[in-house]
Computed example of a mutant assay.
Amino acid sequence: MPVPGFLLVAALLTQAPREPPRPGPRDLCPVCGMNVAKYPAWQAAVVWKDGGVHHFDGAKDLFKFLQAPGAFLPGRKREGVGALFVTEFYGLKRIPAEAAWYVVGSDVLGPMGHELVPFASADDAAEFLRDHKGRRVLRFAEVTGGVTRSLDSGPF
């Protein structure tokens, strides 16, 4: 006969990661230093396995951070990441960053200029791509340092 406590722990371990709290007025992006709370439509977050949270002013800075966490937060490593979230463009809901569809090269700018614009579905991303002169739709694994550098240097 299974132990009820064991079942509860097993159920908790298989649940989706918990969404982090919204950033407060003093939360600054570790990449650019911008006040994150001022840009709710663009926010992204790292939830650490130790329970800590860091907020970002957009998906682009989240990806820059993931490429070299220790450069922005000494002592932090990619292995310590528990969950990643981005704010999807149309519904302004937080979604897991790994599940998002990202449009690059559009005429919509984020707080730091050209941005990775996240969507919850391929259909939403395709619609946005057409409506806002986007160049490409990328998945999480396709967002490299070359992509973020291209966004920083101007139109993708």
Rank of each mutant, 00 (worst) to 15 (best):
residue 21 P to C: 03
residue 61 D to I: 08
residue 30 P to A: 08
residue 53 V to Y: 12
residue 35 N to V: 14
residue 69 P to Y: 09
residue 61 D to N: 14
residue 80 G to V: 03
residue 72 F to N: 06
residue 23 P to R: 09
residue 20 P to D: 03
residue 43 Q to M: 12
residue 31 V to L: 07
residue 69 P to G: 04
residue 69 P to R: 13
residue 56 F to D: 09
residue 70 G to C: 10
residue 74 P to E: 10
residue 63 F to R: 00
residue 37 A to L: 11
residue 31 V to T: 03
residue 67 Q to T: 03
residue 69 P to N: 08
residue 69 P to K: 07
residue 31 V to P: 01
residue 45 A to I: 12
residue 13 L to S: 04
residue 34 M to H: 03
residue 27 D to T: 04
residue 13 L to V: 12
residue 33 G to I: 07
residue 52 G to N: 15
residue 43 Q to K: 11
residue 41 A to Q: 14
residue 29 C to I: 03
residue 26 R to A: 15
residue 26 R to M: 09
residue 56 F to Q: 13
residue 73 L to M: 09
residue 44 A to V: 07
residue 34 M to W: 05
residue 59 A to Q: 02
residue 33 G to W: 07
residue 61 D to P: 02
residue 35 N to D: 14
residue 55 H to F: 15
residue 30 P to G: 08
residue 27 D to Q: 06
residue 19 E to A: 12
residue 23 P to G: 07
residue 17 P to L: 09
residue 23 P to T: 06
residue 57 D to E: 13
residue 56 F to M: 13
residue 52 G to F: 12
residue 13 L to T: 08
residue 53 V to R: 07
residue 63 F to M: 06
residue 73 L to H: 03
residue 21 P to G: 11
residue 68 A to R: 11
residue 19 E to M: 11
residue 42 W to L: 01
residue 45 A to Y: 08
residue 32 C to H: 00
residue 43 Q to S: 09
residue 56 F to T: 13
residue 76 R to P: 01
